[in-house]
Amino acid sequence: MAVTIDPIHQFELKPLVSLGHIGHQQLAFTQSALYMFAAVGVIALITVVATASRSVVPGRMQSLAEIFYEFIADTLHQATGDGGKRFMPLVFSLFMFVLILNLFGMIPYAFAVTSHLIITFGLAALVISVVVIYGVMKHGTHFFGLFVPSGVPKPLLAILVPIEIISFISRPISLSVRLFANVLAGHIAMKIFAFFVVQLLLAGAWSVLSPLPLFLTIALTALEFLVAALQAYVFATLTAIYLNDALHPGH
């Protein structure tokens, strides 16, 4: 029984084409990058190729693209009102990108790009940069009124303003950590339970118990599909809510 549990190995980056080093940083075209471009390709297939005919009565793929569009447009509108329309490409791209990458991760033996903190943090940092840059460009210093709660006595502000600032900075962190942790934990759990199935099958008489973790693995896989879609939705919704701050900072 040389089966060893290794739930971490699946998250390793595998350089496909190495491009050398910059200091400690290793530059390479990894499988992660390949998956990212594949995701872009799939999204383009759904939203660009399938809509090429511009038919009024949509085909299956085109109606899929339309459903996603209307879903995100609704979410964005709910969070930001009419002013949020300009952020539609950003929120739509983020949602589709995260959704497709999460679903890619559900394919057996495939690599879950969103299980890497740097990727989710990159996306979250993009969101928060857009919020700050757009907020300052649109509202100037008034944007920083976001950090000053109204109706609070002056002395309390000395404590509350730093807390508000930290709370604001914690947003990209919670946004990225939430997605990363969900995907990572889900994949590790699936791997471990699936490993139990193998382990029990090889354990002689105990193999009669192997259906138990098998059912758990199946249930967990179904749950992970749900999490994959839900986390993409949460990412898009929170992005929309944060963008609302850039559009309408506190009065």
Binding site: V40, S93, S115, H116
Partner: peptide
């Protein structure tokens, strides 16, 4: 592996390229 810092720069670059392409297309 997810905290392996040596791949961060290259991952960010590919992320920027892929997401930039996606954003442009969308």
């Amino acid at each position: 592996p997810p905290f392996e810092t040596s791949g961060f720069l290259s991952q960010l670059i590919w992320l920027a390229l892929a997401f930039g392409l996606l954003y442009y297309l969308m």
